[in-house]
Design a protein around this nucleic acid. Structure first.
Lengths: 342, 342
DNA sequence: CCGCCACTCTACAACGTTGTAGGCGACAGA
DNA sequence: TCTGTCGCCTACAACGTTGTAGAGTGGCGG
């Protein structure tokens, strides 16, 4: 297990470079020599030392993935897809959690730990547009998320505005007119919340339905408990609505639970729409209608883009913005045709 | 960014070893020299090359975590807890997915990739007791899960039998007598399914309630859809039961959905008990009563144990078996007192 | 018969770091 | 004054690998 090229070379009676050549499929080796070396490798159970290889080559064969929290289903599914795609390319993934905290995100970006990897897929949540400059590092980086745009890095993300608009149009088409929102971030312009709320407003405007502040509920983070809290908040206000758009699935599921507790029927009294296309949204009661923003495509594309950047160190090539296609997964919580309350 | 000890040394007018000494807090350095070196480090923005350090020291500062699938909430939460604990110890985590496939698990165990890490936390799912020998490697390893016992490695896991027995006793105490099971694995003796089913049977026996094959539903994997399928299966059989024990939360949630679809009230007609203590079990409708088997403790303990093994390379010390405490999280799907159907 | 090339292999240096051995001056004790 | 010790620093080698340069053999064309 602790055997090296030297040990193999000694056993096979050749120089270490010849052993190295055998391992790396260098063409000009006599079959007899090659066989002898391979026998020695097998006898000793030799495996190349990857650390030494990394030092020589400057490549580690690993990439880093930074997400806010793995315990959030969205990021767990993202990480699963990234690891799978990386694995197909023979690359391993080092996962970091930032907690969605701006300071920890910035710290991570300049952490020496990143040296252990050839590049980073970075899902920012705490940083904002003003932090774009911090992304400008001499290190292959692919940005995910919607906190920062126009930074000079490759960016793979979803069509938030269009997807949210489509989701809202879907609810409008099914006859809903008072569509509450759970998970808004006050004053946010970009960021998932800001963009999705914009799509929502665009759809309302196009349909001639007035925008009403009183049915918009704000939350800080997008944990499940906040979806529940946001819905309780709306109910406490005493406002009326016939649909809820959860700005992500987790919020929508939390909100749906509170609706049910309050004796409000989903979808008869209130339709519920989510956003993310999570696996678990299929199995809630009722199952959740949601927008699938193309997460698997995002993961695969992020990995491919990063690996390409790593390969071609030769200067840049323009930073690219890559956008996933979305579609609405129609399920029970918001059927496409209006239902008449029983 | 590409600056090395040599660059710093040249700028500060000292030898590279002195720079190295400054970085590693070697005590005997004149303050003036130290200041000069630190200035040079700052000027050049020097950071030590971790790969070279690893080569020299034989340590990488990274550990590997192998789980079946990150998209399964249980493993996502496990990974989150492991990464958090590792982070506190200044160690990064490389995450691998095995798909719960025996061949891929074995392949991973002898993969040269592991060289990139100092040790492995291995959550086995496909391997069985007969594969114990494969765990015997000259490489720090902590085993999780309940597929393999008595292997000569540290093993951190939960009290499956006792916890399942407690869960069943809880249902019995609330007046249920026909407790169906979803997620059994036919013929399995150890493994989560086997052990939990054993706890279930022990509780029945102690209470003098007969064990009935006809209300035990088998599934292969523990995905949500299989919980739903298992429950449909039970309903199709036309058997009667007044409670369901899902061998994990995901199965229980899937089963609960099907119950609800079938117009069966939870918990009035059928109580539902899960196993895992997942975050999302708090937010289902109704919220899921479940056994929290102490997952966070398991994650923290696994990391601490592995790091200790890495530190003391000196021979072994006996392999240890570490068991987490469990507790029942009482929620709506199975209240502790029997409810009379409305 | 010479020169050239293709093939096979080796020696050496280098990637960037840290452990070891040792040099040099200063100062204390004899 | 000599010896020993301590503080400060340097040179060198080593971790295990791969790129570069080149040495030796044999075959082939001229």
């Amino acid at each position: 297990m602790a055997s090296t090229l030297h040990d193999v070379a000694r056993l096979a009676g050749v120089s270490i470079k010849t052993v190295s050549n055998v391992i790396n499929d260098y063409p000009h080796i006599r079959p007899a020599t090659k066989a002898r070396v391979e026998q020695a490798i097998a006898d000793l159970g030799y495996t190349p030392n990857l650390t030494a290889r990394s030092l020589r080559s400057g490549r580690t064969g690993a990439i880093a993935l930074a997400v806010p929290e793995l315990a959030l289903s969205y990021f767990a599914e993202l990480a699963a897809a990234v690891i799978e795609a990386a694995d197909e390319a023979g690359v391993v993934v080092l996962v970091e959690q930032t907690g969605g905290d701006r300071d920890r995100e910035l710290e991570l970006l300049r952490s020496p730990r990143l040296q252990m990897t050839d590049g980073l897929i970075f899902s920012a949540l705490g940083m904002g547009q003003d932090d774009a400059e911090h992304l400008e590092r001499p290190y292959p980086l692919v940005l995910l998320g919607e906190r920062i745009f126009d930074a000079p890095v490759d960016h793979v993300t979803m069509r938030n505005v269009e997807a949210a608009r489509a989701a809202t149009e879907y609810l409008l088409a099914s006859g809903r007119r008072r569509i509450a929102v759970v998970g808004a971030h006050p004053g946010e312009v970009i960021g998932s919340a800001g963009l999705r709320l914009r799509g929502y407003r665009e759809a309302l405007e196009a349909a001639g339905v007035p925008y009403d502040d009183s049915i918009i509920s704000e939350t800080t983070t997008w944990h499940r408990s906040n979806g529940a809290r946001g819905m309780r908040d709306l109910l406490d206000r005493g406002v009326t609505f016939d649909a809820v758009f959860g700005l992500n699935d987790t919020l929508a599921l939390g909100a749906m639970r509170v609706l049910q507790e309050a004796g409000i029927r989903v979808p008869e009294d209130v339709a519920v729409m989510g956003f993310d296309g999570l696996d678990e949204a299929q199995y809630s009661i009722p199952s959740l209608t949601t927008v699938d923003p193309g997460q698997r495509w995002i993961a695969r594309t992020a990995v491919a883009t990063l690996l390409e950047r790593i390969r071609r160190t030769d200067a840049a090539g323009e930073p690219r913005l890559l956008l996933a296609d979305f579609h609405i997964a129609e399920r029970e919580s918001a059927p496409s045709e209006a239902m008449i309350g029983a």
